[in-house]
Design a binder for these strands. Structure first.
Lengths: 197, 197, 197, 197
DNA sequence: TATGAATGAGCTTTCATTCAT
DNA sequence: GATGAATGAAAGCTCATTCAT
């Protein structure tokens, strides 16, 4: 551990934050392997050993970013479960709120989202975890009579994660839609489908 | 004329095919950077210079795999456009056919699919291209009156690609659903939605 | 005046002593290069700059240990010279006394002995110095008629140092023999040899 | 392993031998840590990767040297055991022969001897192993009636190893004595002792 | 008497790639 | 069609040491 793990004054905290922020950019832009510590520290205006004052290794700083992403996202997903006894008319709006919160988070730091969703080796695992949470929410909501019963919620949950992931980059990141709009449109699609009514 | 301007006899063809096949496995399993040429040639039973007889570079062999994937997938997508004047009742089945063909292809070579969809830098680009094609199909099908008009087909197309991508790994690769089932369920979801009718 | 020209109060003295003691353990256990200042200070509960308050450098603290060892050992060796006019019958006992004192010292602090005898670059030099002193003792004792004249006392002295060094680790440190026993047995061997009389 | 372990032509063998020889010098002169691979390859006229073509690591090349030393020395020691039924008058000569062979080997490559006896971490272990072999020889020779029975052969063996080690550097390496002389003098000392007869 | 923060200098190791044969 | 041998270029990481406070 060396000096890592000792108390840090405000200067140290600032240095570490700067390194984290630059690392986020670099990892998101160039991927893990193409990101060089030498480059990060150069942009941060410190030397290589300083980097190792705050992070164990290249893997460690990357992991710190991924873990933060995962925690935030799973928390938001958990919070999106709907209570029972809701008026069916309010359903679309209520679902959209949860989804919108997720899109807000994903939109907050594009670079971090890229890392968590596409760059990290855990990306797949994270998406599965989110899908699990969503599936569990959907099943319980299905039991509450909010949704039709003849559909496999595992498929819906996985599909929803795919939709979120894809629209995040194609629509949200490009500024084509705002989180709330996107949430509303997805809810519309998933609730009512494409059929000509 | 093969790679690098040399004529290749059957031995050369065999070596090249072997290298390609092993490379597919390695890239899919370990990613681009963790895949070492030294490892590929060891498993293929040839030396490093032999590798360079068939491929310009590590990038080149990787690109060969990705391009193949992209071509096959875009072709299949193009073929899935529906002609006009269809009976609306046959619609779900007809859509499912196209989708099923795509899942069949994705299921054919898991490793190649992983490369094209998740490992390659172009993954995002490929998905966008597929989404473009699907969007164009959907819009024209929408004009044919097959779908409701008050929905943004860009969103639907991107979403569909996300659904395909995600369910490919979570369901198809794990053998939980067959291509046809998966196609049918997705069509069901996208046509009729989740609402309790 | 202490190290580096500063007066040292009792706290400083304690810190320095602690550093020295921990350094002894570390150097003896891990060797010079494997011993990290960062490790020493961590175990001592101080920071790196504090270390440099008491010692110029890693070399300096090491040197302090080695010098102490050397001084003590050479002093003991000098004291072991026998006066002339001794009764030949008391000879073995008298020699053993000197040798025993040396073993006592070597046994006092195993870690320090390891450093002085095996780890330091000067180890060889120290042993040569001891051998010189012993040789000079032996030659003068030889002139006093205590030993046979047809033997090269340089060889005997060097050999004796080798014996001391080796038996220190193989016998003394393992607690197999006490200093006095060891001294007596060595004297027996060196005086009378292995021959079947 | 990379390319290591493949068949090597005569050029490769030469490169490896050169690296080994230079490494021996460097390790013996500067110790393990002060020896830099960069220095070894510079002196060998090759680049760093070439080094790793032949050796796994710095540790590995060092180990190769130490193992060779250990094997040679233990073999020689085993061969020095005396058969039973010898004329007691030939004893000193016969013992000296074995000892002389050992000194010849130690004198052959001073640098390698330094590594095996003083630089390697295993040095102590090697000496113990040699002492074990010698002890076993001595005990069996003692049973054959070649030596007095009232002496602990463990002590003699360890002592002898110390004597060998020390005289190797102080006498042999400096050219003060030849292997045979040295062997003879040591035998004289160990058989008859210092006493004035 | 002590520390938080930082660094200069350097080391081992890796890998894609190539040349001569 | 294939190989033994070699390399250019760099990357991650470590450590003793110091400055400002």
């Amino acid at each position: 551990m060396g000096q890592r793990g000792r108390k840090q004054g405000s200067i140290g905290v600032k240095s570490k934050a700067k390194l984290l922020s630059i690392a986020t950019d670099e990892f998101a832009t160039n991927g893990f392997h193409e990101t060089k510590i030498s480059n990060i520290v150069k942009k941060a205006g410190v030397t290589q050993p300083t980097f190792y004052l705050y992070f164990h290794s290249k893997e460690a700083i990357f992991q710190e970013l991924v873990s933060h992403f995962r925690t935030k996202l799973t928390d938001l997903t958990k919070e999106s479960r709907l209570e029972s006894g809701l008026d069916v008319n309010t359903l679309p709006g209520r679902i959209a709120v949860g989804l919108s919160a997720i899109f807000h988070f994903l939109n907050e730091d594009h670079q971090l989202t890229k890392i968590g969703f596409f760059i990290s080796t855990e990306a797949d695992d994270i998406k599965s975890q989110i899908a699990d949470l969503i599936a569990s929410n959907l099943v319980s909501e299905q039991k509450d009579g909010y949704f039709r019963k003849d559909i496999d919620m595992r498929i819906v949950a996985d599909g929803l994660v795919g939709v979120i992931e894809r629209l995040t980059v194609t629509s949200l990141f490009k500024g084509l839609k705002k989180p709330d709009e996107l949430a509303r449109e997805i809810v519309d699609l998933f609730l009512y489908g494409l059929q000509n009514q």
